[in-house]
Design a protein around this nucleic acid. Structure first.
Length: 263
DNA sequence: AATGGTTCCAACCGCTCCCAG
DNA sequence: ACTGGGAGCGGTTGGAACCAT
């Protein structure tokens, strides 16, 4: 449905915030809170729309914001979470206290995405130069760039055949060895929303193992109950519907672990 | 020092979701 | 069940800072 703009634009200031504006907004929120963003600028005496105030507070002014470069650990978490959730920056941010969705989004687009693509390209080049003795996981056949799966060779069995320990891969320090790197995902994977069918074609099905299924369901429930998974009709649901077999597969093959990999 | 290209990030925009009425 | 307003989200962009020549 067509919506009117969130604010009357005429007369409202746009662009970078001044120190004075920051101070006014901070003092107002410290004193009165921010129960109504739309009304806030009027009450605080700011010539900004509520949306702009909210963004400034969330991304810059709130006291628990963490400044400075991202650590390797934080970057690995972003990569892993992005692999699981896609571009759900707020959900990823929920796993990184003090970091904002906007900041994570920027880091992804400016650093991590390029780094992953570069790593993948390097691997691709080296694999064409010499026949690798290690079979690589392929999500697509050699004749197609689309995400399809061989009918008699599942992703998970290929994964296992490499003898990689699940936990090590999930938690590894070295980007060269990360799960994401191993998947040889093409660029479109990161930007395109997958349909249920597409995800089903990527993610393998698995044999039912009742006890492990039970533990898995509990772990999944705990995982989803954590902060940051409030939305319903998006990529996480798609993973639930069609692709959770993939995580189930990782789960049951992680030996004695009764929880999903720690993110 | 000047210029042009690139990188990075703060902020905006448009959309969807949630929920009260 | 429907509607409309507010909040929140992800995509995009303007421009400052940085870098190479």
């Amino acid at each position: 449905m067509a919506r009117s703009p969130c604010c009357e634009k005429k007369g409202l200031k746009k662009g970078p915030w001044s120190l004075e504006e920051d101070e006014i907004l901070t003092l107002y929120i410290q004193k009165y809170g921010h129960s109504n963003w739309r009304a806030l600028p009027k009450h605080a005496g700011l010539l900004r729309c509520g949306k702009s105030c909210r963004l400034r507070w969330i991304n810059y002014l709130r006291p628990d914001i963490k400044r400075g470069n991202f650590t390797n650990e934080e970057e690995q978490i972003i990569i892993q979470m992005h692999h699981l959730l896609g571009n759900r920056w707020s959900a990823i941010a929920a796993k990184l206290p003090g970091r904002t969705d906007n900041e994570i989004k920027n880091v992804w687009h400016t650093h991590l995405k390029k780094r992953l693509l570069k790593t993948n390209n390097n691997q691709e080049n080296s694999s064409t130069r010499k026949k690798s003795s290690k079979p690589k996981i392929k999500r697509s056949d050699s004749n197609s760039s689309t995400l399809t799966q061989s009918s008699n060779s599942t992703f998970s069995s290929d994964f296992l055949s490499q003898g990689k320990d699940i936990e090590n891969v999930i938690n590894c320090e070295d980007p060269e060895d990360s799960l994401v790197t191993m998947l040889e995902i093409d660029e479109s994977f990161w930007s395109e929303t997958k349909t249920d069918d597409e995800i089903s074609s990527i993610m393998p099905s698995n044999t039912e193992l009742p006890n492990q299924q039970y533990h898995f369901n509990n772990s999944l429930q705990n995982f989803q109950n954590q902060e940051g998974y409030g939305y319903s009709s998006n990529s996480l649901d798609k993973v639930d519907d069609g692709g959770m077999d993939f995580w189930y597969d990782l789960f049951i093959r992680s030996g004695e672990s009764t929880d999903l990999p720690e993110f």
